[in-house]
């Protein structure tokens, strides 16, 4: 399963790679990383219909996670990827907006990786 993680913090990459070391080695997950919304859209363009799952931060400089979600839902109506939004602001306004725009799930930081792992495995 190909998963695209979108976050402006570059350390997220090594964190995910270490946290899911076994799953990556076992070939269950394949992670790609984008450090902005624009980068994420470019990646989707270059790898059409590959990404099954997108994990995106909401609060990013430039294109926000919400904006990214809108574009993904508009640009990729066929074979839509699952989108999970992640944010430090666990308020209901953010949550409601994300869900309304077609997010599949909503996580708050700090991310509980065990929970996330279970969720990803269940989708798999």
């Amino acid at each position: 399963m190909k998963i695209l993680v979108v976050d402006d913090e570059e350390d997220v990459k090594s964190l995910f790679e270490q946290k899911f070391r076994r799953e990556i080695r076992g070939g269950q997950f394949e992670f790609s990383f984008a450090f902005s919304g624009e980068e994420a859209l470019a990646f989707m363009q270059n790898h059409p219909s590959e990404v099954v799952m997108i994990l995106s931060d909401i609060n990013m400089p430039g294109m926000s996670g919400i904006e990214l979600l809108k574009r993904i839902r508009a640009d990729h109506p066929a074979a839509p990827p699952q989108v999970m939004m992640i944010t430090a602001y666990g308020d209901s306004a953010n949550h409601d907006q994300a869900m309304q725009l077609g997010a599949d799930d909503f996580l708050t930081k700090p991310v509980n990786f065990n929970e996330l792992k279970e969720k990803l495995l269940s989708i798999l």
Binding site: E9, D11, L15, Q18, K19, A88, K109, P110, V111, F113
Partner: peptide
């Protein structure tokens, strides 16, 4: 503080 702290905890 929360974001850097999250990294500290996670790592």
């Amino acid at each position: 503080i929360q974001n850097p702290l999250n990294f500290v905890n996670n790592f």
